[in-house]
């Protein structure tokens, strides 16, 4: 999209919302927020509000999709119609189908699927309000909800994006930066090993910029990881402690 003349960085190097280049937006995470789901998480990330719910492991429907060797994961990223400026048509879009696919594949690397053959684990994420970076917010919330559901995992999955604005690599793009910036680079990692389990990119990176963007996004995800752990500890702390 063409920039109508918005300056994404001021003369002091500050961004539109006052952040520095390598600063995250404010994030709050709360685990165990839904009554019926086996595990759940509410997450606010800048102007994003997402709610994740996990059901299962449970019976596979339809049955012929059951895998005799491992659990099947279903991931549904869903934009609420009122979450964006121009109403989003209810139901899956091409965008949400692609996001759901790569997010599911990221979680499949982390979950011990072989522990639950012939079952299905449903991960549903509702984006209630969107302000750039929803796939990262959704996946970060989903992995907390999976942990809240007690599903064994190699590690949490933590997502964070880097991008490029005014020729500089920046952490965690906001709406205007996403629209008028020069690149968007969402990744997700398993923080213990810093291995990348989700990676998408569109825009323009030189080799040097790719390296800086990888470092920036991984550092950002490590900060988010601390908040995920804090939310889970908070959920399971014993009264009076």
């Amino acid at each position: 999209m063409k920039n109508p003349g918005i300056k994404l960085l001021d003369e002091n190097g500050k961004r539109l919302d006052g952040r520095g280049l390598k600063e995250l937006r404010p994030i709050t995470i709360k685990a165990g927020v839904l009554d019926r789901a086996d595990g759940s998480c509410y997450l606010e990330w800048g102007g994003n509000k997402v709610l994740a719910g996990v059901y299962g492991p449970r019976e596979v429907i339809p049955r012929h999709l059951a895998d005799p060797l491992k659990a099947r994961v279903v991931y549904r990223y869903n934009l609420a119609p009122f979450s964006v400026d121009e109403r989003a048509r209810p139901g899956p879009s091409r965008r949400s189908i692609e996001i759901s696919k790569v997010s599911r594949e990221a979680l499949e690397k982390a979950i011990f699927l072989e522990e639950f053959p012939k079952t299905q684990i449903d991960v549903y994420v509702e984006v209630l309000e969107a302000e750039a970076g929803t796939r990262c917010a959704a996946l970060t919330a989903a992995s907390v909800a999976l942990a809240d559901a007690g599903i064994p995992m190699r590690d949490l999955v933590t997502a964070c994006a880097a991008g490029k604005i005014e020729g500089k690599i920046a952490l965690d793009l906001m709406k205007e930066e996403d629209n008028y910036g020069e690149a968007d680079f969402p990744i997700a990692i398993m923080p213990r090993t810093k291995e990348i389990v989700l990676m998408q990119m569109d825009g323009n990176f030189t080799r040097e910029e790719l390296t800086e963007a990888l470092e920036t996004a991984i550092n950002g995800a490590m900060q988010v990881y601390e908040l995920q752990k804090k939310a889970l500890k908070e959920r399971y702390k014993i009264e009076g402690e």
Binding site: E105, K109, I196, V197, M199, N204, F205, T211, L214
Partner: peptide, 24 residues
């Protein structure tokens, strides 16, 4: 020689150095 799109798919994980090597 600039990267304009990337997509990871499937159930695997990459180290940062792996991505840089594959880019080259």
């Amino acid at each position: 020689g600039n990267l304009c799109a990337a997509q990871k798919g499937g159930v695997c994980a990459y180290k940062k150095e792996d991505v840089e090597k594959l880019f080259d």
